[in-house]
Write a protein that binds this DNA or RNA. Structure first.
Lengths: 239, 239
DNA sequence: CAGTATCCGATGCGATACTG
DNA sequence: CAGTATCGCATCGGATACTG
């Protein structure tokens, strides 16, 4: 790890936290990912070797603990107390980002796979029906693709290939619109009315589905631009 | 600027904030440094070209504003509203650092020049006497060197060479001790009693001097280690 | 003072392939 | 699944020189 040669606590903390990929790794750990493969899901473009390297550094720094599962020998990564206390910083960064650089989100930042992965961990489990619900998402307009969300207890999962089960709900959506909805920039009602998002299936499931998604952790934070000058030509901000 | 390819606001914010040197540049701007040369004082090891490059990126990102002083043509760098709102994040990072990685501060992080520069902006101006007070600091034990602090209105200054004026106070100090004092790890009373810091000069000035320094912004944050296991063999934590 | 310009060496990063 | 190993390349760091 590269140092700054400063005793200032901001510098010492930045040596650990403000390296490339590190804030995102901490974010994933904070959001409940503990397995190496789970971390990779939330960090699509990180080189494997670099993820290993970062996890080792964070271990050395006392931020992450690596535990070998004795039976399965599959290691688990947990935040230490020190690591867990980075929560408010990561959250603050996200809020700042949502408030100030939201207009900078471009097509190259859209990623349905990542969106699905994010959805999976923001489901209102208590609102789900008892029996499993399989939802198929068809994204179009940009980054086209099909994904499946299997809503079941104890925890939902994402599939890149058709799961074995019959599909209960079909979501047909514009990729940009779904991202905007997720980030709190578009309301369910508007999305449905403008047919940017279409839900097909049994009436009761169609009606309930929007209530199962908790949306992004930052969907409640308004963009600073919104209040003054609504922007027109930008991806996640366009109305 | 390198991107992550993620729409997540944490990622978008990290692209801007979590680059090498950037948190420290923002810290300096938040602490009231606006001139290029002032920034360089607070960032001793940054290559000039890199500082220029970072300031440009931050300008593009809407975090920093560069203004040409019309008469002097000396540019000033100011944080925009967006930049100013990074305050809580920088402060949070510093508090986390003080709490968790304080034990990691080693000899290579000590820097009397930086310490003097930090002192300069943490003076209780309202407590200073009317007439100028020139203080000479002699550091020894590690990173030996002599610096001068000129306490005067409207603002104090640091000199690496003897200022023109007579010296009023002489501070003779162990380098480590002075850093520990500054970071809240050592009390004035203990430092003086153990003769780690000696103050010489007119009695009234000697008595008042400790009250003029406000100490580091993070001196009030206790190390997490202190409560449980006091560490012995580390620079800023050793008693 | 506040840059700009250039050069060089180190290493951080990203891509790909291989392994128990 | 959770890594290692290798390798090219861009960036960073550090030095130095020049400028208005």
């Amino acid at each position: 790890m590269k140092t700054y040669g400063q005793f200032c606590p901001v510098a010492k903390a930045a040596e650990i936290f403000a390296e490339r990929w590190t804030p995102l790794i901490i974010r994933e750990l904070l959001m409940g990912c503990h397995r190496f493969s789970e971390l990779e899901m939330g960090l699509p473009h990180i080189p494997r070797s670099l993820l290993v390297q970062r996890l080792r550094s964070l271990e050395d720094a006392g931020v992450v603990e690596r535990k070998q599962d004795p039976n399965g020998r599959k290691p688990r990564y947990n935040l230490t107390t020190a690591g867990a206390e980075l929560f408010s910083i990561v959250k603050g960064l996200g809020e700042w980002g949502q408030r100030w650089v939201n207009h900078d989100v471009g097509l190259e930042d859209l990623d349905p796979g990542l969106l699905m992965w994010d959805m999976r961990r923001r489901i209102h489990m208590d609102r789900l029906p008892q029996q499993r619900v399989v939802v198929q998402f068809d994204f179009h307009g940009a980054r086209e693709g099909t994904y499946w969300l299997v809503l079941e207890h104890p925890e939902p999962s994402v599939c890149l290939q058709p799961p074995g089960f019959d599909v209960d709900l079909f979501i047909n959506t514009d990729t940009i619109a779904m991202h905007r909805l997720w980030m709190g920039k578009l309301k369910w009602a508007d999305a449905l009315r403008q047919e940017l998002i279409e839900i097909e299936g049994p009436t009761s499931l169609v009606r309930d589905f929007p209530n199962w998604l908790a949306l992004s952790l930052f969907s409640g934070v308004a963009s600073a631009l919104e209040t003054h000058r609504p922007s027109a030509d930008q991806v996640l901000s366009q109305s």
